[in-house]
Design a protein around this nucleic acid. Structure first.
Lengths: 114, 114
DNA sequence: ATCAACAGTTCCGAATTTCCGAACTATGGA
DNA sequence: TCCATAGTTCGGAAATTCGGAACTGTTGAT
């Protein structure tokens, strides 16, 4: 297994962020991670309620999230610990993540007003 | 030629906005439109400096921008007048467009601090 | 040490999407 | 009417996405 790639903060591209978050499944995953109710493992995030994401697809989603700079993944024993890079990201792209999650009506702790 | 489709404000989906603006060429077009230095016609926006977008591709870009709700197009004689729907959009998704354009370092009248 | 179980990745083929040249359509002017 | 211009649609090659099956790496049990 080749080592997981994470871009340095300065190398994070807005187009990659927008692309990654233009898929509602990935948004759902990212939001759950940001909420951090789960342990941040992949399999804990597979269940979307209406559908269970196949694991190869899930692995792909995480790859996209990771390589866009949205998520940090590190192996911990047999499983993968994932966390968002929100704090860093907000430094590089102020307000971006918040505005996106708000648009999706998914900003944690903020009820949908829609 | 079938009539051009524009979504109603309430039907605009964040995923469509993000997808549309995850392509740097479309962002460049959108920024030029927002700046409105050009007349807003398609052909006036084809020249990106480093490359001229082929017209079928340009037409496709406008379709994506239009159907995502970012742009309003109306025929005026032989040409097409395009304008952004920024004001409406900011009502529906507060701060989103601004945050995205800032991330791209392309907010009109705002120099890149990068 | 070997084996089994499990989390996640990689491989690869089918289906979908993107890209763009060529053909086409609509409008206005000579 | 015929031509020029602005943009759309068509169609096929190339690239991307999706997901099942096979694989890898780690842990725990025997």
């Amino acid at each position: 297994m080749r080592p997981l790639f994470h871009p340095a903060l300065k190398d994070i591209k807005p187009e990659a962020i927008l692309y990654a978050l233009s898929d509602p499944e990935r948004v759902a995953i990212f939001v759950k991670l940001a909420g951090a109710n789960s342990g941040g493992t992949c399999s804990a995030l597979a269940d979307l309620g209406d559908r269970v994401i196949p694991k190869s697809s899930l692995s792909n989603h995480f790859k996209v999230l990771r390589e866009s700079g949205l998520v940090l993944s590190e192996r911990q024993g047999v499983e993968m610990r994932n966390q968002t890079r929100c704090t860093e990201l907000d430094e590089r792209f102020p307000g971006l993540i918040k505005a996106i999650l708000t648009a999706y009506g998914q900003l944690p702790g903020q009820p949908k007003t829609d």
